[in-house]
């Protein structure tokens, strides 16, 4: 739905609804890019696009979700350009098979770690482990576990069905636990419940 706004209205929305989320957007950008300088460019580009397409933003709706969606799409376009991937290859395709494999009732397979492990992890280890995930998995963990978006909101942000959100999240968490398990093992902790 497109509306016509004059400059004053645009600036007001930008100031009141978009800028308050700049902290979160910046952190998202850093996690996606793994590089602060490039993250700043991504942030600028995102806000510029948000301003340009502000007529499509429905005032008073979830501005943060809308902005993250733009950030994610800008990132993907840049990522494609930098890695010279043919445009017709869907970014999501790489994980599609994996998502489908786990979309059924077979989602009970869980990596189980002991509570002690989580209590002893430091922020640096968690951040590194999240950074080591493939970008789609990183994104879904940030959206769900860090930002607290609901599945239907995530589905809209990353343009996938809710079933894919569910299965990808499950897979991302398991991958993350595997990585955290490695850190804990290096520090000499007993890992699995069964070993407790």
């Amino acid at each position: 739905m497109k509306q016509e706004l004059d400059k004053t209205e645009k600036d007001a929305i930008f100031e009141k609804e978009f800028l308050p989320h700049i902290d979160s957007l910046y952190n998202f950008a850093i996690f996606l890019e793994n590089n602060e300088e490039i993250a700043k460019d991504l942030l600028q580009e995102t806000y510029l696009r948000a301003y340009k397409f502000i007529n499509y933003y429905e005032k008073g709706t979830n501005a943060k979700a809308w902005l993250i969606r733009i950030l994610k799409n800008t990132f993907i376009n840049e990522y494609r350009r930098r890695s010279k991937l043919p445009v017709q290859i869907d970014f999501e395709e790489t994980y599609q098979q994996a998502d489908e494999d786990e979309a059924g009732e077979g989602t009970t397979q869980n990596v189980d770690l002991r509570q002690e492990i989580y209590n002893n992890l430091v922020g640096d280890e968690i951040t590194k482990a999240v950074n080591a995930l493939p970008v789609d998995y990183r994104l879904i963990i940030l959206l769900c576990d860090v930002e607290g978006f609901k599945y239907d909101e995530i589905a809209k942000i990353i343009d996938v069905p809710i079933g894919t959100v569910r299965s990808r999240l499950h897979r991302a968490r398991n991958m993350l636990k595997e990585k955290l398990k490695d850190y804990a093992a290096k520090r000499g902790y007993t890992i699995n419940e069964t070993q407790a």
Partner: peptide
């Protein structure tokens, strides 16, 4: 345990405060 995992992620993941010059930029 699963709840603690989710909570740990939220609480301990690194969050940077944006510097004002970046916002101005």
């Amino acid at each position: 345990t699963e709840k603690l995992f989710k909570q740990t992620l939220k609480d301990k993941i690194m969050k940077r405060n944006i510097e004002s010059h970046v916002v101005d930029g």
